[in-house]
């Protein structure tokens, strides 16, 4: 099981014929993901390494009954690619692209939410956007819709993982993997200020997943997503959650690589996040290896 993607997911790649799109299409296939087609406007009707390429998401979706789209389109066209997939009724859209203008993301996220509500009101599956500027998602042993290294996902397990950072996702997944615990599903939600899915959106899915026993949340400075997650956990979660916060020593007002990782005034400080998790009885690891000990401790209770 796991959440959001599994071995039955049928994936199309928007921007498959680009450099990143091509190499990650191959890596996803190697992982075992059912990559069914690519979309590159203008290259419809051609073949790319055995995959049929279409001009539009709607065509690809109709021809292959696809239910997930992963986007590698360059920043200027990325939000438009999201809207194309959303209007084609794609239930899950994963935006990998980094550097998309924030105003474009605001507009796209709002429209996706409107389409999601409309779809659900009609009894449909809804539309969910993950990212942008994210590493995607993996359900261990089943499917990867993302750019994580395949070899850190050799050991399927029962820990859910959610992270704002790509590299720290790998770091945590490897630690869990090497500790013999392994992950169920990993969701990289992205490091941008405006993203489609937040920690608090993913936590209920893990809470409901019979294959997940505990959840690790990898947060960072900036914004208040960790605070919202803590509030959700305190009110709704029975499964144990362990947190980690990156950038605790970063100075105020300086943007730490991720556009979203900036402390502005009193918003986004590590103190605020630590306090929120403490109030929700969520242990926060000081170092990444401590995450493992804390998960073990939480599960043995």
């Amino acid at each position: 099981m796991g959440i959001l993607v599994d071995s039955s997911s049928r994936v199309i790649v928007q921007g498959m014929t680009g450099r990143e799109g091509a190499s990650h299409s191959r890596a996803m296939k190697e992982f075992g993901t059912q990559v069914v087609a690519g979309v590159t406007p203008g290259k419809g009707g051609t073949d790319f390494e055995g995959w049929p390429v279409y001009n539009s998401v709607a065509e690809a979706k109709a021809a292959h009954d696809a239910n997930v789209s992963i986007i590698f389109v360059p920043p200027a066209g990325a939000a438009d690619a999201v809207l194309e997939a959303a209007h084609a009724g794609m239930p899950l859209i994963v935006l990998i692209t980094e550097g998309v203008p924030t105003v474009d993301m605001m507009k796209a996220v709002q429209e996706v939410k409107t389409l999601d509500a409309a779809s659900r009101a009609e009894g449909g599956q809804g539309v969910r956007l993950i990212g942008g500027n994210c590493p995607g998602l993996v359900t261990n042993g089943q499917a990867k819709v993302g750019i994580m290294p395949n070899k850190i996902y050799t050991n399927p397990g029962r820990i859910g993982l959610i992270s704002r950072s790509g590299t720290l996702t790998y770091e945590a997944a490897k630690l869990l993997n090497d500790a013999g615990m392994g992950t169920s599903t990993t969701v990289g939600i992205g490091g941008d200020p405006v993203i489609g899915t937040t920690f608090a959106d993913v936590l209920p899915l893990f809470e409901a997943d019979p294959d997940t026993d505990a959840v690790v949340v990898i947060g960072e400075i900036g914004g208040a997503d960790e605070e919202a997650a803590a509030e959700y956990i305190a009110k709704n979660m029975k499964k144990p959650v362990v947190a980690f916060i990156s950038g605790r020593s970063a100075p105020k007002g300086k943007r730490m690589g991720h556009a979203g990782a900036i402390i502005m005034g009193d918003v986004g400080t590590p103190e605020s996040k630590l306090a929120a998790f403490a109030a929700a009885n969520v242990p926060v690891a000081d170092t990444m290896p401590e995450i493992i000990d804390m998960v073990k401790a939480a599960l043995s209770k």
Binding site: S163, R164, S165, G166, T167, L168, T169, E171, G191, I218, E220, I221, S246, G247, S249, A250, M256, G257, H258, A261, M288
Partner: peptide, 9 residues
């Protein structure tokens, strides 16, 4: 990666 560098700090 931004996350790994932040944690390195």
């Amino acid at each position: 990666g931004a996350g790994i560098v932040m944690t390195s700090l």
